Amino acid sequence: TYTFKVDNKDQAKKAAKWAKKLGLSFQIEKHGDTFKITVQ
């Protein structure tokens, strides 16, 4: 499981695209202005 934080929606979208490309499941949680992405 890999967790990282991004500062904006664009970065969150890029991370989601990357995870989908690799066939991984992911969750994006919004914490105020940051997004926490968990990829597994």
Rank of each mutant, 00 (worst) to 15 (best):
T34G: 15
Q40R: 13
V6R: 02
K30V: 09
T34E: 11
F4P: 02
V39G: 01
S25V: 11
W18K: 04
Q27M: 12
A12W: 04
G32C: 06
K21E: 07
G32R: 05
K13P: 01
Y2P: 02
A15D: 00
A16Q: 08
F26M: 07
T1I: 12
D7Q: 13
K20M: 10
K20A: 10
F35S: 01
I28L: 06
K13D: 12
S25M: 10
K30A: 09
A15T: 06
E29K: 08
D10P: 06
K17C: 13
D33S: 10
F26Q: 00
A15M: 12
A19Y: 10
F4L: 04
D33F: 07
F35I: 06
D10E: 14
T34R: 11
K17G: 06
F26H: 03
N8P: 02
K9V: 12
A12Q: 02
I28Q: 02
K9A: 13
T1A: 11
F4H: 02
K14N: 07
I28P: 00
K20D: 04
K21N: 09
D7S: 13
Y2A: 03
Q11R: 07
F26I: 13
F4W: 11
Q40W: 15
K5A: 12
F26C: 13
Y2V: 07
N8A: 03
Q40I: 12
A19M: 14
K36E: 12
K13W: 10
D33E: 11
T38L: 05
F35K: 00
Q40S: 14
K5Q: 14
D10H: 14
E29C: 13
F26P: 02
K36D: 05
D33M: 08
T38I: 10
K14G: 04
A19H: 02
L24Y: 10
L24A: 03
Y2H: 07
H31S: 12
W18R: 04
K9T: 07
A19N: 01
Y2C: 15
K9S: 08
I37R: 00
F35V: 03
T3Q: 07
A12G: 03
T1V: 11
V6M: 05
W18P: 00
W18T: 03
N8H: 05
K14T: 06
L22F: 08
F4N: 01
L24K: 04
F35P: 00
K36A: 10
K17D: 08
A16Y: 12
K5T: 15
K14V: 08
K9F: 14
K14P: 01
K5N: 14
Q11W: 06
A12V: 10
F4E: 01
G23E: 03
K13V: 10
K9D: 06
K9Y: 14
V39I: 14
K20V: 07
A15V: 15
G32H: 05
Y2Q: 03
